[in-house]
């Protein structure tokens, strides 16, 4: 067996039972009234509004961008979302639609979602997306290599991607659903941060299980340890499977209690989601109007 590289010497084993117990307690926090409204607005501002389908069209991307800038036309006081996340060939369309709005533009790249293209092609994809106007890149790691113990390969690929990004922020997708154990998630998180990730992200959203509170907690703890050791802040993005506002609020509670208030803003925490947006908007409408809302009155994308 190969020796564990130096940059993984700080990866402790994860206490799975402890993680489960702690997550169960996060879910019991009750958030009401004014706190709930401000929490929902914060969650909205942290959304990476995502469309990653083979049938994506420029029209759909433009519609998504309008929604990103003005999530609910009935309530202009709401903040815009954190970013729009699209495939590289849709970046130019989104860039034009988002110009001057303050909404960031993220693109998945590096042979998303499998990551099984050649490294040269994957790096070229990053440079293409950045050239088209993306200021955030969501890359996928080679999970097969990682599981085979080729940590150095994964480290080098992340470092190469970071270099290809230039000034764009790099989010590293671990695809935790394929890593199987919390120990692997912890190792992959540590590895990604050491290799230069600005954000670590749970999932592609293309497979189940995607983001779970448990896996997110493991990654938040890795970020916390890394910050204590190096002083560098790393962002976190759970993606996929977060569909309702209540779940989103419990994630915010988790971030607040593990990493503290410094991370509670869109620069350091994001939700990768598409259906979550409408549920947040419906909850906010409920708080504003006093009656339960219907999806019939909110745009699908």
């Amino acid at each position: 067996m190969k020796p564990v590289p130096r940059y993984l010497q700080h990866s402790p084993p994860v206490d799975a039972v402890g993680i489960t117990e702690r997550v169960a307690r996060f879910k019991t926090r009750s958030i009401k009234a004014a706190t709930k409204v401000s929490g929902l607005k914060l969650a909205l501002s942290m959304l990476d509004l995502t469309t990653l389908e083979g049938k994506d069209s420029p029209g759909k991307v433009r519609q998504l961008c309008r929604k990103a800038i003005t999530p609910d036309p009935a309530d202009p006081s709401l903040p815009h979302v954190g970013a729009v996340c699209v495939y590289p060939t849709m970046v130019a369309t989104a860039h034009k639609a988002l110009k001057g709005s303050g909404v960031h533009l993220a693109s998945v790249a590096t042979s998303f979602p499998s990551g099984l293209g050649t490294l040269a092609a994957r790096l070229e994809e990053i440079r293409y997306a950045v050239g088209e106007g993306a200021d955030e890149i969501d890359m996928v790691i080679s999970r097969g290599r990682f599981l085979a113990g080729e940590f150095n390969y994964v480290f080098d690929e992340i470092a190469a991607c970071k270099e290809a990004c230039g000034t764009a922020h790099l989010k590293v997708i671990l695809e935790t659903g394929e890593l199987h154990t919390y120990d692997n998630v912890r190792r992959a998180s540590d590895l990604a941060m050491e290799a230069g990730a600005d954000f670590i992200k749970t999932s592609t959203g293309k497979m189940a299980p995607a983001a779970t509170p448990e896996v997110t907690l493991v990654m938040l703890q890795a970020i916390q340890d890394y910050h204590e050791r190096t002083g560098r802040m790393i962002g976190m993005k759970p993606a996929g499977g977060i569909r309702d506002a209540k779940t989103a609020l419990s994630y915010l509670v988790m971030v607040r209690e593990v990493l503290g208030p410094d991370w509670l803003n869109p620069d350091w925490f994001r939700f990768g989601a598409s259906t979550l947006a409408n549920d947040i908007l419906m909850q906010l409408a409920k708080q504003r109007t006093g009656h339960y809302a219907s999806p019939d009155y909110f745009s699908n994308d």
Binding site: G290, H291, Y292, A293, S294, P295, D296, Y297
Partner: peptide, 8 residues
């Protein structure tokens, strides 16, 4: 009140 105002 909730039954009669629910938008859905």
């Amino acid at each position: 009140p909730h039954l009669s105002t629910h938008m859905d």
